[in-house]
Design a protein around this nucleic acid. Structure first.
Lengths: 138, 138
DNA sequence: AGACATACTAATAACGGTTACCATTATTGA
DNA sequence: TCAATAATGGTAACCGTTATTAGTATGTCT
């Protein structure tokens, strides 16, 4: 695998934030350093970096992926309204995978635990705009 | 809200399987009863049924949603290769939400726990086609 | 340094699941 | 029965992502 300014920039952008950016966010941020950068290049390299294990990818509502430079297993909170993710320090129980594998016979490699609700901003936003809106399920 | 043959059929299809079908699968299945059924109608009603809480929706890789007629909280195994889901009888810890809420101040409503790996079929498939393929991360 | 092989890029078109639109149809309450 | 209007079918638009392709940059070998 060869090296490129573009890939370096993309990796550095993802590693330098904990906001769990979308591909589009990474694109705009990296373009500040490399103005001619193409969106396709961002997608291609994010995929490569995931396969290499340098970054992690979390797929979410609307088919939008979010990326994370923190590759150690940890859990997240995700907002049901805007889709933003943030880290959460819930305990990581690696033995869960083994337990489920033993009980089911499935080839369990890892698990994803995501807490859901409304983030601060969206809670305020919703309260302001309409107190009588459709309640979300769950 | 009015009633319609179409919505009845769609709900009944989702409720009558535990295969966690995609919208497309529901569409083809429901068309066996209502030949003129439109795909848009399936999507529109699945969304309504989710909002009513009659079915659950799990978004996954590739922007593909899967639906579940079992609305009681439970966890799943999802295949990294084909995306199929199946139920898993891992314990549901409702107190987790409270714990994370207390620790973070976030408005945690629920959580999603998904075990990942390769399903039976994909494991065989992968072994057959190539023993020297790229290993997946995690 | 120069030249070669080829991985990588930029630009753009295609793709696939989902949603929006709108004229027509079907359900419901009076 | 009949009017009001929610729901449908058909189709086009949407949007994040992926594929294509001609051209560029990188690493290697001499």
């Amino acid at each position: 695998m060869r090296r490129s300014r573009q890939r370096d920039a993309i990796l550095s952008v993802v590693k330098s934030t904990d906001c769990h950016p979308t591909a589009d966010w990474v694109y705009h941020e990296a373009r500040r350093r490399i103005p001619g950068l193409s969106l396709g290049t961002v997608y291609r390299n994010l995929k490569v970096l995931c396969e290499l294990g340098w970054v992690r990818c979390y797929e979410g509502p609307g088919g939008v992926s979010r990326f994370d430079g923190a590759v150690a297993t940890h859990h997240h909170f995700r907002c049901d309204r805007c889709g933003e993710m943030q880290d959460v320090d819930a305990p990581v129980d690696a033995s869960l995978d083994r337990q489920v594998a033993d009980r089911t016979g499935l080839d369990v490699r890892y698990h994803v635990l995501e807490f859901r609700g409304l983030c601060e901003g969206c809670r305020l936003e919703r309260r302001r705009s309409s107190g009588s809106e459709v309640e979300d399920q769950h």
